[in-house]
Design a protein around this nucleic acid. Structure first.
Lengths: 201, 201, 201, 201
DNA sequence: GATGAATGAGCGTTCATTCAT
DNA sequence: TATGAATGAACGCTCATTCAT
């Protein structure tokens, strides 16, 4: 019991740091000083370095957790996705769930440790995989235009990222851009890729 | 004469600072220290602050100049653009011309003074304006799908920005992504927006 | 039994700390962090401060133990030492036995608590005492030059310390300098202090 | 004139930093924080890093200057030194001149950048060179015992260093150990190395 | 106007020490 | 008693900004 209590406390602190960092990095970007994270988390500055020897280690942990979580959410895409429409809807659901941090990731990944890039790559690969198989099928069925799949994918991702990265132009800074533009994004994109006879409404 | 000489000198220094900052920010991003800019420009560190009271002022000037230049280039779009295809080709030409700095702008605009956003907005508005009028015409002519114009535009911009922001995944770090993917970007996008009978090759 | 067990445990912990600190300080010097000592000793970081309220207390204990041990070894000098030669040989034996820690002590004593100096003094006094009585006798016998004894002693100590403190110039960093230069140190020193008719070979 | 004034100011600050660092390192050792040096020098903390990019650079500069100065003083040894006695007297003069910093150097050289060791080596080599040539001559003349020169040298250096390193046992902490023990050191050492017929008084 | 040395607040990180368990 | 997470003052170093020349 004793040991368990101690471990709980430790992991509580760790959790507080991780959650605070996640929240603050989401809000303000990855260059917020560690001292601010500590203050917001209600722990001492030194505590951060008890749990994460360097700032990079904290970032890597955050990104890794994030990649795992978002990856897990994305893996559930496969089950429900009999159509592109469904796939993209679910993709938007996942993006909405992780919206703030994901936006920071795609914006600042170049400043982050190399591990960040792999997180990014893994996430996109997962989506790309499901996207490919669904689109492939639809192209064969003749419901989607026959165009190179990777560019169809990049077009979708580019479109969504464009809204995420320019959030302040599209919505109140607090709301979710994804939620607000979900319908528009979906219908436009689907109407673009569908053959004319298959118009999406 | 004296005054004129001094003014010449003054404006030379200013020009050197602006050009150097433009080049270095293009290459390394906006967080290069001012001392490095000064050294590269061959002027004293203090000179920067004679011409630009704060770093923000230098950035605003740079962005404003950039907006003017790129805006001017973009205004010439109108003349040549009788078709979407031509318009987009010219847009890519302009983007290629300003590629490095433009990429930094869309990547780091959140770290820049608020004025940066207006530069960004002005540039995109200019493009959007020409895009609208051309697309409008083509929709009316029935060569382009009837979809909300602003989303068609965002799709195009999102697609291009996606390549610019993920340059390292698409090309050698030195070459121009735009030059390399120009054909692919154009053909994909046009095939998406054109009605089937009008397929772009 | 409980109490005894607990006491055993306590003294075991204490012993582990002392032994580890002795070993690590010998190897790496006195500025190794306490956390490293704890890890190497296989005890918790806090345990160090249960047994030694401050780092200084640990150092004082270590130095005191060291003084006792080396002092005890040195006290046995008296029995065997009928000649300076024997005395110095035995002195070198003792120094070789304690070489690593002793070298650290003479190198870093200024960074150590004042008590370190008394350890140093006690050790040297012990040697000086035996040295004095042997040399005294030899001077009377006329085998050693008649010079102030304390300087003869300081010359010897200076010579030996010089080799200990500049170990890296004289030998591989791993071997014992004393062992390697024992003969040379002895013969030179003895030839210096002996009257000519008594040359040492 | 203007430029000269500016340069003077700069070099004044640099000089203040160097002199203060020299003085404080002499008094308290090389691990005094840079912030203390700055405060004592009457300059801002940042100023130190304007003149010396890293602490190591400051140390290297200090040691290099020191090596040059002491080296220059030592090179004058050659002229006056017709006898060991004169040589050693002059050596002591130089040591007395640089006593405080020299003592720190021999005590803490292991903690200093590698360049420190070369300073140490250069200084000792200079002394060793003059020592060798004088002693060589005297051994040939038969006034000094025939013993390996390098150990005769190490004995001298060991003796002097012993007094420098244990200053607090030999003299008031303020006075110069060298000045106080000059006669004793010289006479003892000379009497040890001289043949008996040549006794030094 | 141009200079560049000087400034000092702020950064990530270290480590002896404390204290609830 | 033993634990080890938590603490916070201190460190070397950076850099936009100031100002005497």
């Amino acid at each position: 019991m004793r040991v368990s209590t101690r471990q709980t406390q430790k992991s509580n602190t760790r959790k507080k740091i991780i959650e605070t960092a996640y929240r603050i990095f989401s809000e303000k970007g990855f260059s917020v000083p560690t001292s601010i994270i500590a203050k917001e988390a209600g722990v001492s500055h030194g505590s951060i370095f008890v749990h994460f020897p360097t700032l990079n280690d904290l970032l890597i942990c955050l990104l890794s957790d994030f990649g795992d979580n978002m990856g897990a959410s994305l893996h559930m895409l496969a089950k429900k996705c009999y159509s592109v429409e469904n796939l993209l809807k679910e993709h938007l659901n996942v993006l909405e769930e992780y919206e703030a941090f994901y936006s920071r990731l795609i914006l600042e990944k170049n400043r982050l440790p190399d591990e960040a890039k792999s997180t990014f790559v893994i996430i996109q690969s997962t989506v790309a995989f499901h996207f490919s198989s669904v689109i492939d099928r639809e192209i064969e069925k003749g419901t989607v235009k026959k165009l190179p799949i990777h560019i169809l994918f990049n077009t979708w991702l580019g479109l969504v990222h464009y809204y995420l990265l320019n959030k302040e132009f599209f919505s109140d800074s607090n709301g979710s851009v994804i939620r607000r533009y979900r319908a528009e994004l979906l219908s436009t994109y689907l109407n673009l890729i569908k053959k004319e006879s298959e118009v999406y409404e």
